[in-house]
Design a protein around this nucleic acid. Structure first.
Lengths: 117, 117
DNA sequence: ATAGATACATCGATAGTCGATGTATAATAG
DNA sequence: CTATTATACATCGACTATCGATGTATCTAT
């Protein structure tokens, strides 16, 4: 079956734009998805380790941080960009296929009643 | 995070159209998705059991079958239809959200020019 | 006979995610 | 001065979904 984008893809997509630290990556994903996508730190940090071990991102401790706890900033590698491309393609096909089977009729627009607002 | 459609949703969507037996459901999903979605029988049959135990589908042995091995035909229940609706909605939002995060190649917010419209 | 499609089912392994817990720093509230 | 909240890292056990292999059985075609 091999599902969709998973957390790895989302992380790669975020760090593709600019290097960022773990906590910030999680916040950015929530922000971009209007809080529809979020996950705990028990998911995030293991994923970051795996991605780094696979050579898709590179992390280094931010020495310039003055306020608050230390940050580890992750940068996407060339390999990571290639992989992100594959993930985007796979997601695209998967998403389209699920729509086909699920019969994703256009999400019926809720008729707006004249109440309130 | 709670991902997208999963096998349960696909199965429900197929039996929503017409009652069908397990093996046929698997073939139908492959057909509808042009072979992009498929899964082994080690996934299929446990899912059918779970769906039945949850009251979302109802299975009975096909007595009218004359050729080949016995078939167990599954029909969607009222509960199943309701659940399928929720699954479609959830998939719709999930899919849209992943697109937002993943497809973020250009993040540039368009500066609003004073001349628009 | 043998292979392949149909059709059911179970079992152990694995991978992805969740929830809880722990450490530490800094700012703000009481 | 203490408690709480936000930031920021990390690990651990548990659970669930899915995969791959295996098994039984029927029927058709070679």
């Amino acid at each position: 079956m091999q599902a969709g984008a998973n957390v790895s893809g989302l992380v790669l997509a975020v760090v593709e734009v600019a290097p960022l630290h773990g906590y910030g990556i999680a916040r950015e994903i929530e922000k971009r998805s209007a809080d529809a996508l979020s996950f705990g730190e028990g998911t995030l940090y293991p994923v970051l380790k795996t991605l780094e071990k696979s050579g898709l991102i590179e992390g280094k401790w931010d020495t310039a941080v003055e306020r608050g706890p230390a940050r580890k900033v992750y940068e996407i590698t060339h390999e990571g960009k290639m992989e992100l491309g594959r993930i985007r393609d796979a997601w695209s096909e998967y998403s389209r296929s699920v729509d086909l089977v699920l019969g994703q009729k256009e999400t019926h627009v809720k008729p707006r009643t004249a109440t309130s607002s």
